[in-house]
Every structure is written in structure tokens, then in C-alpha cells.
Design a protein around this nucleic acid. Structure first.
Lengths: 238, 238
DNA sequence: GGCCTTCTGTACGGCAGCGGACAGACCTGT
DNA sequence: ACAGGTCTGTCCGCTGCCGTACAGAAGGCC
């Protein structure tokens, strides 16, 4: 299937015949919510463009991103693991588009194609490896390192240039907005990024990788290992 | 099957007939390593007693626990998700015992029983929900809250009383050993625990729950929802 | 008993990031 | 042109935890 999504792109004709009839192309606007915490997930989404965030909001009002999903996978992993909800919310952070599919249809397709199930479960594993890395990273690394990592991971999915406010980035990193402002200026003064009013451009990805913690590389390598055609991940994004 | 392990205990006769021949009872001594980071996992383990930790060790030498597994599940989730390794190490923290099973055998059993696969995948989901909660908790909560949470989660698996040094607990929480010593004394002075030379006793679990962050309850509820017979989890541990 | 190792208590300066606040810059709509 | 919202830059005192270090206490071993 001709797609920017790594899973869809890897489908055999037989797999595609199973899935294609259930897909509906949909825009994925910024701030769209895929599902709320602990509420039933009735649809899943394959992302073509843009970036989604799995966000954990605690009872005390604090919130933080625990995982991100882009054109390498799908939103709705609980469906793969025999349930229909989880205690996190999933939002679109960088706008884009994708394919929507009823959760029930995905469940029945999983029973009909072993090879497809393998691909999806391996994506789930990559997704969870990312989460495991975030759990460590969130505790052990500085704002600057984590900020650089987040920007690089987003770059791999949407390109060098995307809309993003300090406010949202602060939410992602679980820090104060003012902390992001300071950090963004440090990175900008180092010539790694440029930022202005809700927009960020990465000007020196190599330098940014040096500023990031090893977690970036660890996660990227794990995606390469587990994704179909992962040897070409992250792709050069036009 | 007569077992303290939530998954094994829930098996139907047919499921048990599939699995039982592949199980070998094994002791799980303290500090035993189940698997190392990025090395092939050839066996899985159902835990009967004791507690295992999934530990993420970063290239810079820092390490932290990103998940724990006890008698509610199995060690070796990558096998469920169509791979044989992950960038984490898994160790036994609180000694106990369990059942070992070749990974290949598990894979073939997964193909033979839909109902068993469902149980195992739902455990995987619970495990990952725990990880997602840890990712947030590690960033947003104090040592004292996280320490109380860790002790409660361990209590649910092994009882009120277990071997544990400040050094190991510091590794679990990703903090200094000295920080744990101070925190343990705060909890002890509050009458919630007693500790001495490599051993901890929980004396007031209700009070300890008040000292812990909400993450404890959130994770526990998710396990109850997803585990077979989860309405009785955590069990009263003799 | 005496030695050695492991574990625990405590201390001290230092710093990353917090919470809260405010002002200026920039965009949009009317 | 003006008003009102949004976004960014910066400042303040504060605190939780760090890194490091050292000494005493408890247990194991001979």
C-alpha cells in the first residue's frame, strides 16, 4: 500500500485486502483527542503525518507525556492487547492526517492474518520500549537533554519544522513553561534550533543529537530493529 | 492449577494440559538475573513468590527500575510481542521461586490456545500501564511518595516483611542511597515501617498508602481490571 | 575474641528546577 | 487603529535532591 505509515507500507497484497476496506482517511488536527483516560477505545488510527502523544494526567492535575506515536505506528495499542482502555489520554500534538479504523474490525483482522498480527505486536513492543526508556529518562536527565531528545524524535516523524509552543512542550516534558523557554534559548543560541511564537525549526540535527541524552539513540535503534522496513527508519521526511 | 501465580491459577484444564509439561519448578534467589539488556531471551518465568524488577541501565552508568513483576505475571513479555529481547535487564529483587518455561514452548502454546493468549496479553497490558504510570511518577513525585508506593507494591506480592537494603531501594527509585536512608527513617518515625540492616517490615499499610502517591492505587486498579481473578488482587499474602 | 565486610546515619555545599509573578512582544479580529 | 488574547522572556526566593564523604553499627568468618 502506498503510504507514509511504516506498517501500512509493509503490507502484502493479502494483508492489504483484509485491512483496506475498513480504513477511512481522516485529518488529524492539532489538539485532537483520540481517546480519554479509562474510556472505551472504539477506533484505532494509523498515522500518516503528524505526531500523537500519550499523556498521563494525575489526579493532582500534573501531567506528562509517557510516549509518542507518529507515522511508524498506530494509536490504540490496548486493542492489540485484548482490552479497550488504559489510564492515559492520547492527543495529537503535531497536526497531520491518517487512517481511522473501527477497533472491532482490527480485532477480527488480527485473527485472520498471523503475519499482520506479528507486525502490530512488534510495533507495540517498540512503543513500550520507548516508554521504558522515557521512565528512566524522565528521572535521570536534565531538561535540556530531554528537550533535545523530544525535538529529535518529533523531527524523525514530521520533519525539521513544526508548530509547537513552549507551553505544550513543557507539558510533554513535565516541566514549567518558563523552564522550556530558557532551554529553548540555550539551544537556539547554540545554533541548533530556531523558535518563534508557536513554531520550531531544527537547524542542526547533528548538533542537537549531541545535546540530547543517549535515550534518543536507544529508542531509535529499537524502532529500527522492530519495525517492518525499519532499516530505513527514520525516513528522510520531505 | 494450584498455584500462587494469578495466570497459572486461572488456567482451565485444557490450558493447563498445554502448559504444564513445559514447566520446571525453580528457585529464584535474590539478585538472580533473568535476562540482560539486548540479549536473547530463551526462557520465560512464571513467578510464584518474590519480586522481579525490570531495570534500565543507561550508558552513563545510571540505572533505575521501570517496572516490577511478581506473582501476578510472567517474566519475558517480549516473547509475547514477537521478539526475544529488549533494552532492559530483569533481576530478582525479593527472593522467591517460580516456574521456568522455554520461550519456544510458550510461543507454540500461544498459537494453540486463544484463551491463554488473551490472558497473557492482558497481563502485558497491565505491565505496560504500570510502566506508563512509573514514567510519570518518576518525574513528578517526591522520593517519599515513590518509596511508599514501591513498598506497597512489593507488599502486595510478597507480604509485610521482606529483605531489602537501602542501596537496592535507591537503585529501584533512581536516587542516592543516602536519600533512601533519610526517607526510610521518616517513614519509620511516622510508625509506618520498621527497617534494620537489609530488612523491612511494613507495620501500617493504611498509613503507608496515605504517604504514597496516587500512582499506587491507579496501578493496582488497573491490575485488578486486567488480571484473571483480578477482583481478588492483591491477595492476602500468608 | 578480633578482623573484615556490609549496611546505615548524618553532614555540607551546591544546583537544577520549582512556584509564582509580571511585562513586553506578537498576532487576530473588529 | 485599537483591543484582547496568546506567547515569550525574565526575575525572585525557595527546596528537594545531588555528589561526596566519613564514621559508627551490625553481622559473618576465622
Amino acid at each position: 500500500m502506498d503510504s507514509r505509515n511504516y506498517i501500512l507500507r509493509s503490507l502484502s497484497p493479502a494483508e492489504e485486502a483484509l485491512i483496506r476496506p475498513h480504513l477511512t482517511a481522516v485529518p488529524l488536527p492539532q489538539r485532537m483527542t483520540f481517546f480519554h483516560s479509562d474510556e472505551p477505545i472504539t477506533q484505532v488510527w494509523f498515522i500518516e503525518r503528524g505526531g500523537a502523544s500519550l499523556i498521563n494526567t494525575l489526579p493532582d492535575g500534573n501531567a506528562i507525556e509517557v510516549g509518542t506515536i507518529g507515522n511508524e505506528g498506530l494509536v490504540g495499542t490496548p486493542i492489540l492487547l485484548e482490552t479497550d482502555r488504559m489510564p492515559c489520554e492520547c492527543d495529537m500534538q503535531i497536526p497531520g492526517d491518517g487512517w481511522q479504523m473501527p477497533a472491532q474490525a482490527l480485532k477480527s483482522v488480527l485473527h485472520q492474518s498471523d503475519t499482520l498480527r506479528v507486525k502490530l505486536l512488534r510495533f507495540a513492543q517498540a512503543h513500550f520500549a520507548q516508554m521504558a526508556q522515557s521512565a528512566a529518562c524522565n528521572r535521570l536527565h536534565t531538561i535540556e537533554e530531554r528537550c533535545a531528545r523530544w525535538l529529535l524524535m518529533t523531527r524523525d516523524r514530521v520533519g525539521d519544522d513544526f508548530p509547537l509552543t513552549h507551553e505544550y512542550l513543557a507539558l510533554m516534558l513535565g516541566v514549567r513553561r518558563a523552564g522550556v523557554t530558557v532551554t529553548a534559548n540555550i539551544l537556539q543560541n547554540a545554533g541548533l534550533i530556531r523558535h518563534a511564537r508557536g513554531h520550531i525549526t531544527i537547524t542542526d540535527p547533528v548538533g542537537l543529537e549531541e545535546a540530547a541524552c543517549d535515550c534518543y539513540r536507544i529508542i531509535r535503534d529499537e524502532f529500527r530493529r522492530l519495525l517492518p522496513q525499519g532499516d530505513s527508519y527514520p525516513g528522510d521526511v520531505p
